[in-house]
Design a protein around this nucleic acid. Sequence first.
DNA 1: CTGTGTGAAGGCTTTCACAGCC
DNA 2: GGCTGTGAAAGCCTTCACACAG
Lengths: 207, 207
Amino acid sequence: MDKRTGIPRKSIYRLSIYQRCLERLKNNDVETVSSSALAKAAGVKSTQLRKDLAHFGQFGIRGLGYNVNALAEVIIGVLGTSSLQAVILVGMGNLGAALSRYSGFGKEGFEISAAFEADPERAKTVRAGVQVLPASEMSPYVVEKEVRMAILAVPAEAAQSVTNELVSCGVQAILNFSPTVLKVPDNVIVNSVDLALELEHLSYFVK
Amino acid sequence: MDKRTGIPRKSIYRLSIYQRCLERLKNNDVETVSSSALAKAAGVKSTQLRKDLAHFGQFGIRGLGYNVNALAEVIIGVLGTSSLQAVILVGMGNLGAALSRYSGFGKEGFEISAAFEADPERAKTVRAGVQVLPASEMSPYVVEKEVRMAILAVPAEAAQSVTNELVSCGVQAILNFSPTVLKVPDNVIVNSVDLALELEHLSYFVK
DNA sequence: CTGTGTGAAGGCTTTCACAGCC
DNA sequence: GGCTGTGAAAGCCTTCACACAG
């Protein structure tokens, strides 16, 4: 659980899932939803959904369910998705370039404001979805724009040093795609997505 | 934990991390490593590492540590990474195309044997790292080659139907990049990586 | 009667503490 | 002395059971 708030990290994570489901309900003009229906859509048990929400207050009407719009507002508020965060992308290899063009971030209200690439040649030629700046401009950019979130898609060898640089400039959250365990201070949060590891993990379950 | 074996899923997951660290030690010609050193490299506590290993037997030498090569062999055996699994990739949008060219899979001993794309135009023009086949050939391919693992990078709307098709052809493990909760039978395992969700999750922790 | 909110129970995982071996 | 292996304890998270509100 999160030391600062006492709320389990997993709960926070599921809130994002609920939010996405609510968005879909909204689009279908559904006004009310029960915890069991929403839970089913999110792939969890209804009691868990109610417990998750209980951390933040009481939002349902007994015998009826939840107001879709109101609940979505609550979750958006909790997650802080309402206040659009600036995000930068570091590393424009295969994966970085794809992420820069990935529309899924935009759908959830995130926008990558700039990308950085150490290799000048690649920076020029890469098919990017955002402006690509040289690595040397990263620190000034982060400081000036007060960037707090970064997506890291650099090679494993470079990951820790880039991380150190980001942290020293004030970045507080890093989504890491490099196959490395990053060391960061306690006040910085890292979320690692290791694609090869996920695949390896799956192979264990295949007979 | 896994119903079939009684071993926690998280332990299995960490084994992959240990394995990667061991690989690095091997390359540096390190012969022996203590649980605390290895645990530190993997970002976990030493007791946890020992508990994880204890599920499979005793591999250490008291007072000394673990033999790097021997332990790596054990883990490879447990994870089943030794027997190279065929993997297919479905969906060649931004993300799919990047994954097809991603070298990280190869490094860990996986090879994507083919990719499938429903849009014939895109199938022709995409810059892919593997052969791209039309979606109609997916089922026959999976059946013929006895494919057991698939990477799913199709739009959310198509994810469930493609999944159903894969499952009915015998696929047992799916690495899902679509922002959807997939419903599958108990004997099929799904590992979902939702990029936008990961980012959203992070934003909660940014002040 | 339906569906939420919640204390209590249960189940998993992690951590501790230390016995045992090199 | 150093480090592994492991029962016991602690900590988390999930699920149950049911009181309570509409």
